[in-house]
């Protein structure tokens, strides 16, 4: 038996070597073939374009690690956006109530997901598929089907402002990556998330309150989706009830490309960051090379399947 190369090289961060190599290879290829790829401002563009999906992907990572699934991320994103838009613009409340309202709306919908999954025992696929539809409907109802324009300056600063030349959404996204990477890899909360996804019985017999933990996970997922919704609305200066359609699939794709086990028990937030960057760089580079977006979709889908296939091959080799 020998230690797999990946865990020897990146044991500190628990990141798959393959993901890093793909990321570097892709960046190198783009640097050679795509005009203007190699510049600080383009690099920040990539991060900015990745931030919203990236925040959702952090949520997806936690839920997938626990062998759960949250298909409602994109719809919850929209609800949070329009709730804060309606609170700030239509009702004229101060900006912080708008932010708080958006986050609470996301957390609340997450709590509903969690309760139905952990207490009522309905499969996560069904519950969150239902929520995908319900939350989208709620977003349209709350906003009367129209985008809310004219968000308060403090909120738009979070989407459009810069600090030290770096866009605010990038700061927020990277801060979340660091914090949630530590939570998943170093805290009991993260450990129990992985163990529940690995073997729920192992979690139960060692005294972990599995249903309570699952509920917390879906609340976290909803709250992060809410935050993503606020960032998105802030960036485009409009709370759009149709925002974020199918974003949950991109988020799950980023997590899985980054090494998260779709069936639970393994995953890291840094890995997910790499997964999201692979997708971001691919899109950005192909855009710069003026490759039509249809091809980008083919490329991302192919990478997703390749990532999982690589995993299979390696797992088989291990045993």
């Amino acid at each position: 038996m020998q230690t797999p190369l990946t865990s020897r090289v990146f044991s500190g961060l628990n990141v798959r070597l393959e993901s890093v190599l793909v990321l570097l290879g892709l960046a190198l290829a783009m640097a050679i073939f795509a005009p203007d790829f190699l510049s600080l401002s383009n690099f920040l563009n990539i991060l900015l374009a990745t931030a919203v999906i990236g925040v959702l992907a952090i949520a997806a990572t936690f839920v997938l690690c626990a062998a759960g699934l949250d298909l409602s991320l994109g719809s919850v994103l929209a609800v949070a956006g329009v709730v804060s838009g309606v609170l700030c613009v239509n009702l004229g409340l101060p900006w912080f109530l708008g932010l708080l309202g958006g986050l609470l709306a996301g957390g609340l919908l997450g709590a509903v997901n969690g309760l139905l999954i952990a207490r009522a025992g309905i499969p996560a696929f069904i519950v969150t598929l239902g929520m995908l539809s319900v939350a989208r409907g709620l977003a349209l109802i709350i906003s009367d089907g129209k985008p809310v324009y004219g968000l308060p300056p403090v909120i738009t600063f979070l989407g459009q402002g810069r600090f030290l030349g770096v866009p605010m959404p990038v700061w927020i996204f990277l801060a979340l990556v660091v914090v949630f990477h530590l939570i998943l890899s170093r805290t009991r909360f993260g450990r129990y998330t992985l163990v529940i996804g690995d073997n729920e019985m192992a979690a139960r017999v060692t005294g972990i309150d599995v249903p309570a933990h699952k509920i917390r996970l879906y609340v976290l997922s909803g709250t992060l989706a809410g935050l993503a919704g606020l960032l998105f609305a802030a960036r485009v200066n409009a709370a759009d009830p149709t925002a974020g359609v199918s974003y949950e699939l991109s988020a799950i794709t980023a997590a899985v490309i980054g090494g998260t086990n779709l069936f639970g028990g393994r995953g890291t937030v840094i890995g997910t960051l790499i997964g999201a960057l692979i997708m971001g760089i691919l899109q950005n580079g192909l855009n710069l090379m003026a490759v039509p977006s249809f091809y980008q979709q083919v490329a991302i889908g192919t990478i997703l399947v390749l990532a999982v296939w690589l995993d299979r091959v390696r797992d088989r080799r291990r045993v």
Binding site: L194, N199, A202, A203, G207, I208
Partner: peptide, 17 residues
């Protein structure tokens, strides 16, 4: 009742880290 993808130390101290 072991978590197979987690390491030995994690399993021994599960719930009491």
């Amino acid at each position: 009742a072991l978590a197979k993808q987690q390491d030995v130390a994690a399993n021994i101290f599960l719930g009491q880290e």
